[in-house]
Design a protein around this nucleic acid. Structure first.
Lengths: 237, 237
DNA sequence: ATGGATGTATGGTCTGACCATATTTGGTCT
DNA sequence: AGACCAAATATGGTCAGACCATACATCCAT
């Protein structure tokens, strides 16, 4: 550390913050860090890695955008950069941006969602778990008095199916897809005018999962999503 | 804008770089910016948005990590922050980190990949496109003289199927999943000792897609992936 | 014990500087 | 006029040092 001048100003083939990213990843693997653990403070990290605090911050911003850390100001056990796990929110941001850039069309997102929901329903039927959450959401939808309220619990119902599949990755992807198309959900409910058909779908899906009938569960969720987002229905992308 | 002092040092409910992010997103939507367009320089952006260059840079790092922009140094038409579209690489990084954090298990990734490949094969069979790329990869695998070489073209084969599905989102997700499990692919080839069975699978998949037989394509790819990544096969996660 | 004032570590932001890179520009030589 | 080389310039990359806002930790007086 007895550099005379200071800033290393090297070729910088890899940018400083990329090095920081790599080092932090190594550290997570080597030290077996996991969700809830804290990273050293920005200043300390900068010193340890021999870079400026700005570079450390850029790396932390990347980790944050990827849903891996979360920064808290102040002091105490919860302050600083804490390892978290929010793959869903990261995916949501990613989708929103790429939709904005027209890299992806809404149709592609909706189709992908159909794929995930079919898969989730099938696996949920096999595991037959999470039935309680589904039933609760079902009842809440019955009691809903506005499209907004209905959609809120509708989201919970579908989330319960995804969770019941037992796969956190597909569940996270579905969360993200859901977030990306959410603004269309209320429109869909309003367009249909009545939620009776949707609720009938929901009950059919629920019943099939409860009975362990994977084929029916898949078919029912397909019908349901095509009702809400008709393949040819207007302006989705 | 006749602020006396300088740095606004406000409550900062939303951090400065988040504001920049929002403004850039607005700008993309409003100006209809698309892939290939350039963003203003960091210094100019900072002045326009009334924040420091550091904050602009943090926002750009986020956009870069999400695969939306790409920065080039130097001068000229290609220099600066250019809008790009690399949802795949963004997803790859996201998965790698979450796998490292044990947020996700390898089994979940492999299962998700199976879902995507099934779906892709089915849709590829319906569209019957991309056959040329598949055939090329097939021939290249025949000629491969090492596991590494074989896997390289195997990746190309599966990527061709994903592309043929016509859905850029599922294709991007599969790319990412592929990258996450890639290190196991060579192991799998070595373990099997012979690539004959794998190639037979490939030809069966190719034939089904060529003939537009969606059901067989799905079934064939399921068999294929279970051969390479047996559900009960050792240490995947 | 309790409660408030003070200390302090942490992230958030800004300023201004310099480096590395690559194009643009302009001048010089042939 | 054309080709070639040098200087100017614009851009991202990095650093150093400062100050603010926040929230817990500590200490002291009651």
């Amino acid at each position: 550390m007895s550099e005379s001048g200071g800033q290393a100003q090297n070729p910088a083939r890899v940018r400083a913050f990329e090095g920081v990213l790599a080092r932090i990843e190594e550290r997570i693997a080597a030290d077996g860090l996991t969700v809830g653990d804290r990273l050293p403070g920005e200043r300390q990290l900068a010193e340890q890695l021999g870079v400026s605090r700005s570079s450390v911050r850029e790396a932390l911003r990347v980790l944050e955008s990827l849903g891996v850390v979360s920064s808290q100001v102040g002091r105490g056990p919860d302050a600083g950069a804490v390892l978290t796990s929010r793959p869903g929110s990261a995916l949501t941001g990613l989708l929103r941006l790429h939709l904005g850039l027209a890299t992806l069309s809404m149709r592609e997102v909706v189709d992908t969602r159909l794929m995930i929901e079919q898969w989730s329903a099938e696996h949920a039927a096999r595991s037959r778990t999470g039935l309680e959450s589904m039933a609760q959401a079902l009842a809440a939808m019955d009691a809903a008095r506005s499209p907004e309220e209905f959609v809120e619990h509708d989201i919970a119902f579908h989330a319960a199916i995804a969770e019941a599949s037992g796969n956190r990755l597909t569940s996270a992807i579905m969360q993200a897809l859901r977030g990306a198309v959410q603004r269309f959900a209320i429109d869909a409910v309003v367009r249909l005018g009545d939620t009776g058909d949707l609720q009938a779908d929901h009950r059919r899906i629920y019943g099939a999962i409860r009975d362990g009938d994977a084929a029916t569960a898949m078919e029912a969720i397909t019908v349901h999503l095509e009702r809400a987002y008709p393949p040819s229905a207007g302006r989705l992308g």
